[in-house]
Lab assay of single mutants.
Amino acid sequence: TKVFYNGTYVEFNNPEKAKKYAEKVAKKVGGTFTEKNGQFHVE
């Protein structure tokens, strides 16, 4: 499961961990995250 952010991504074996990371990054940058095709995108 990949989490895309700012033109790069971090890959996780565990979708649950990926979601938590996406939430954390989104919170940090004051943005939101969306799930597309089983991957997370932070905006």
Score class of each variant (00 low, 15 high):
residue 37 N to F: 09
residue 6 N to D: 09
residue 33 F to S: 06
residue 34 T to D: 05
residue 4 F to W: 15
residue 11 E to C: 13
residue 36 K to P: 01
residue 34 T to M: 10
residue 17 K to D: 15
residue 26 A to R: 01
residue 34 T to V: 14
residue 9 Y to S: 08
residue 5 Y to C: 09
residue 12 F to P: 00
residue 21 Y to R: 02
residue 22 A to W: 02
residue 28 K to Q: 14
residue 17 K to F: 11
residue 3 V to Q: 00
residue 39 Q to M: 11
residue 5 Y to W: 10
residue 35 E to I: 12
residue 1 T to D: 02
residue 12 F to W: 04
residue 38 G to S: 05
residue 27 K to E: 12
residue 26 A to I: 04
residue 22 A to Y: 02
residue 14 N to D: 15
residue 22 A to I: 01
residue 23 E to D: 07
residue 22 A to H: 00
residue 5 Y to P: 01
residue 36 K to V: 14
residue 14 N to W: 05
residue 37 N to Y: 08
residue 28 K to F: 13
residue 19 K to L: 10
residue 28 K to R: 13
residue 27 K to H: 11
residue 13 N to C: 11
residue 28 K to Y: 13
residue 24 K to H: 14
residue 43 E to W: 14
residue 5 Y to L: 07
residue 37 N to C: 11
residue 38 G to N: 06
residue 4 F to S: 03
residue 16 E to K: 10
residue 22 A to V: 03
residue 33 F to W: 14
residue 36 K to Y: 10
residue 15 P to W: 15
residue 43 E to A: 10
residue 7 G to K: 05
residue 18 A to C: 03
residue 5 Y to S: 03
residue 30 G to W: 05
residue 33 F to D: 02
residue 28 K to D: 13
residue 30 G to N: 11
residue 20 K to E: 15
residue 2 K to L: 10
residue 18 A to I: 00
residue 29 V to M: 10
residue 20 K to P: 03
residue 26 A to Y: 02
residue 14 N to L: 07
residue 19 K to G: 04
residue 18 A to P: 00
residue 24 K to S: 14
residue 8 T to M: 12
residue 11 E to M: 12
residue 17 K to M: 15
residue 10 V to W: 13
residue 27 K to I: 12
residue 24 K to Y: 15
residue 13 N to S: 15
residue 33 F to T: 07
residue 20 K to T: 10
residue 43 E to L: 14
residue 37 N to Q: 09
residue 14 N to C: 10
residue 34 T to P: 00
residue 4 F to E: 03
residue 33 F to M: 12
residue 37 N to K: 07
residue 20 K to V: 11
residue 11 E to V: 14
residue 43 E to C: 10
residue 29 V to K: 05
residue 13 N to Q: 14
residue 9 Y to M: 10
residue 36 K to H: 10
residue 21 Y to K: 00
residue 18 A to L: 00
residue 37 N to V: 04
residue 23 E to W: 07
residue 1 T to L: 06
residue 17 K to Q: 15
residue 29 V to P: 02
residue 39 Q to P: 00
residue 6 N to G: 11
residue 10 V to S: 06
residue 43 E to V: 15
residue 8 T to S: 12
residue 34 T to E: 07
residue 37 N to T: 04
residue 14 N to S: 14
residue 31 G to I: 04
residue 8 T to H: 13
residue 5 Y to N: 03
residue 11 E to R: 08
residue 1 T to N: 08
residue 31 G to Q: 04
residue 34 T to G: 05
residue 8 T to N: 11
residue 5 Y to M: 07
residue 23 E to Y: 07
residue 4 F to L: 04
residue 9 Y to N: 04
residue 30 G to F: 06
residue 30 G to A: 06
residue 40 F to D: 02
residue 39 Q to C: 08
residue 35 E to Q: 10
residue 25 V to Y: 08
residue 4 F to D: 01
residue 11 E to N: 08
residue 41 H to P: 00
residue 13 N to P: 13
residue 28 K to T: 11
residue 39 Q to I: 12
residue 19 K to Q: 09
residue 38 G to V: 00
residue 17 K to N: 13
residue 6 N to T: 04
residue 29 V to W: 09
residue 14 N to Q: 07
residue 27 K to S: 10
residue 41 H to D: 04
residue 38 G to R: 04
residue 19 K to C: 07
residue 29 V to H: 08
residue 3 V to D: 00
residue 37 N to E: 11
residue 15 P to G: 06
residue 15 P to E: 08
residue 27 K to Q: 13
residue 29 V to Y: 12
residue 39 Q to V: 13
residue 13 N to L: 12
residue 23 E to I: 11
residue 12 F to Q: 01
residue 15 P to T: 10
residue 2 K to D: 01
residue 18 A to S: 02
residue 35 E to P: 03
residue 38 G to W: 03
residue 43 E to Y: 15
residue 40 F to G: 00
residue 35 E to M: 10
residue 21 Y to W: 13
residue 25 V to D: 01
residue 34 T to Y: 15
residue 30 G to I: 03
residue 36 K to C: 09
residue 38 G to I: 00
residue 43 E to D: 09
residue 9 Y to V: 13
residue 14 N to P: 01
residue 20 K to Q: 14
residue 30 G to T: 04
residue 26 A to V: 05
residue 17 K to A: 15
residue 39 Q to E: 14
residue 26 A to F: 02
residue 13 N to A: 14
residue 25 V to R: 04
residue 27 K to P: 00
residue 18 A to T: 00
residue 11 E to K: 09
residue 42 V to P: 00
residue 16 E to P: 02
residue 43 E to M: 14
residue 6 N to V: 04
residue 7 G to Q: 06
residue 31 G to S: 06
residue 5 Y to E: 02
residue 41 H to C: 12
residue 24 K to L: 15
residue 32 T to M: 10
residue 40 F to H: 02
residue 29 V to E: 05
residue 25 V to C: 11
residue 7 G to W: 05
residue 30 G to K: 08
residue 1 T to S: 09
residue 25 V to A: 06
residue 37 N to M: 08
residue 22 A to R: 00
residue 21 Y to P: 01
residue 34 T to A: 08
